[in-house]
Design a protein around this nucleic acid. Structure first.
Lengths: 217, 217, 217, 217
DNA sequence: ACTGCCGGGACGTCCCGTTCGT
DNA sequence: ACGAACGGGACGTCCCGGCAGT
């Protein structure tokens, strides 16, 4: 029995969708209120300012990413952990992509680099290092781990922006995310040993099966 | 003896810089006027609407990219052509990155995918195919050209956004572009034969030397 | 006990007064807001654009004129009906005279002749014809009904403009309207039989007594 | 051999036409410059402010009306003088109708009633009195000269406005003016003796023939 | 005499943050 | 919790008066 979501929840969902589709500053509080089916003034009751909404969504994203990190290390093997981490991360970054895309519109007083973003980069770097330690990488090809990490990060991070820019899509679907994962792995693959390739590919298929679910609309 | 640039030019430069740094909708006509050293109401004389400024900058970018394509195929060898094309493209995309980043704020009536963007993707695809034809790629590694192209495209396209997001930089320098090229080539390199690797690396060094110059900052 | 009128009402009244006195384009939204005793930006809440205010006032006028037509034919004799129709019409046209006077400033996309205006002309023509049918007109003077109607229409229609132009008056009072009626009847009178003259004059006195009331401020 | 009119002349003509068609405040100096085929800034050379243009046109109108008065009393008979005066007056008022229509937009500091307007009324009153003195009016109908004068004035004065409002016409033609004269005389006619009627009608035909010419387009 | 360009300012639109009554 | 209404302010548009250069 699905209950009618709370007003606060409806505001956040409407805001997230609109921010993703139109950008932060092009979205008015009234539009959010309309989409949530309530009166403009009532948004104020739940969130005093427009940035309060952003902050709440940012917090949701941060929490989701933190949760992922916890889940990630639940005793599965490394390939699975890596793939799961990337896929879940892409999903969250897709759902909340405006947080990163419009970061410079939030009138950040100081030029704070987004904490979640940085943490995410670190997580990826840690996983790549463990891949190296567990000898996933070919010996015949000298790899610059730092550079590779960054390239992998970029592909994962900007994939949803790319889909939106390039294909004119407003909503990023689960299929889009899966395609993004394949691209990501495509960048990683040539560096891997044959065995590692198989392990990663198998893990990817497994993760895609396991995680398949609708994006939060 | 450098002459004082025309007012129209000063408006465009100021606008480009501000749009890049703060985003389109966070930038005020008055800010542009101040940066250009003229009265705010006077901007109107040169550009009737704010989007007229964007259109003019878009046209500049399109022209620059078209010019690059012409230059690109001037009888040099393929490695050089590839590297030059990517590097020059990154430079232009860095200088005008707001055009792509804020595309969805320009109230495009229809969801037109930016023509320049698409053309750019095609150019890259063509070059990658020629790399394949001229046997730059290793035979022992099956490569999906379409997928690789897209990954390469993403790294080049979003590199400047990444630098700005991740390092809080407002101006993208020549050094940033060079770093971007290296990342781009890092994605390409594992697929290449040893000979191709050397050819590309040499071409990269050459192009970097040749093109080194200040961004139009 | 007079209640405080709604804000929307106050805006409309203030706008009507100012439009009449200064003309449409010389009247500022801020002036209207001041006159209505509210903040200027708040007018927007009730009327999105300036022409929305005009449209609302036009609708009021149209409704008033329609109502008059209904009232006009309530079983009184023809003389009374004629006089009442003209007097009430003049009152409304005086109260909303800017609607007609400034019509060409409303940037009407097409050159639509004002519907209310045309309807008004038709109403007058119908009444004049009935005067003819009921033998109000002298037999010894050949009368061009169409021409006479138009002259009568002009005197009634532009009377309030004339008072404003010629006497520098901003508000048209009830007395002004009464004077206008007399002028109007002065144009009609020479064409009438002696009996008709008396009937019209008596009806005029009756109507003036009956309708005497303050203009809507 | 028609010479090219002076720039000053072209500005005045363009301004008059535009003011008549769109109203004073809806007409910009740039529109006038465009219509005159010169640069915006050049209008300033001839007329420092927008109201200077209006003042010049007002002066033209005043001069034309004064001239008419002189012409009017050139030894012709009274009927001819009356008709000529009205017709020429209507022509001028049609050509310069914005002067009267938009009078309240010129931001007249004091509520000066337009001098030309008042003078015109006086001229008409004088003529009507002379009609009375020379026994044009029927004896059997008591006539209020003052009231009649005003009605005649209104029909003549607002005729061109009426044509524009009611028929959506931007330019008032000579035929329109002739129609206006007939309406005007229609108001006068019932008060006249049979002989006077003939005299006035004959004079009207004569004047129409004599004065037929293109309006200053 | 004429043009291109400019400075300053006003207005309409639009939105955010807020209050009050229910 | 919620909705109607409100105050204040900012931005883009638009225009007028004015000047430097030819």
């Amino acid at each position: 029995m699905t209950e009618r979501p709370t007003t606060r929840r409806r505001i956040l969902d409407a805001a997230r969708r609109l921010f993703n589709a139109q950008g932060y500053s092009e979205t008015t509080i009234s539009q959010i209120a309309d989409a949530a089916g309530i009166a403009h003034g009532n948004v104020w009751y739940h969130f005093r300012t427009k940035t309060d909404i952003v902050d709440a969504l940012k917090a949701e994203l941060a929490e989701a990413l933190a949760e992922r990190r916890a889940i990630g290390s639940q005793g599965r093997d490394l390939a699975d952990e890596y793939v799961t981490s990337v896929l879940v991360g892409m999903q969250h970054q897709g759902d909340y992509r405006f947080v990163l895309r419009d970061a410079l519109q939030f009138r950040s007083d100081e030029k704070e680099i987004d904490a979640a973003l940085a943490e995410d980069h670190r997580t990826l770097r840690r996983l790549v290092r463990r891949l190296d330690e567990e000898e996933f990488f070919r010996r015949d090809l000298p790899v610059d781990l730092e550079e590779l990490t960054r390239s992998l990060f970029i592909v994962a991070r900007y994939w949803s922006d790319h889909v939106q820019d390039h294909e004119g899509r407003d909503e990023i679907t689960w299929d889009d995310q899966v395609r993004g994962l394949r691209h990501h792995l495509g960048v990683l693959r040539p560096w891997l040993t044959a065995a590692a390739r198989r392990a990663i590919d198998d893990a990817a298929e497994g993760a895609i099966q396991r995680l398949a679910r609708a994006s939060p609309a």
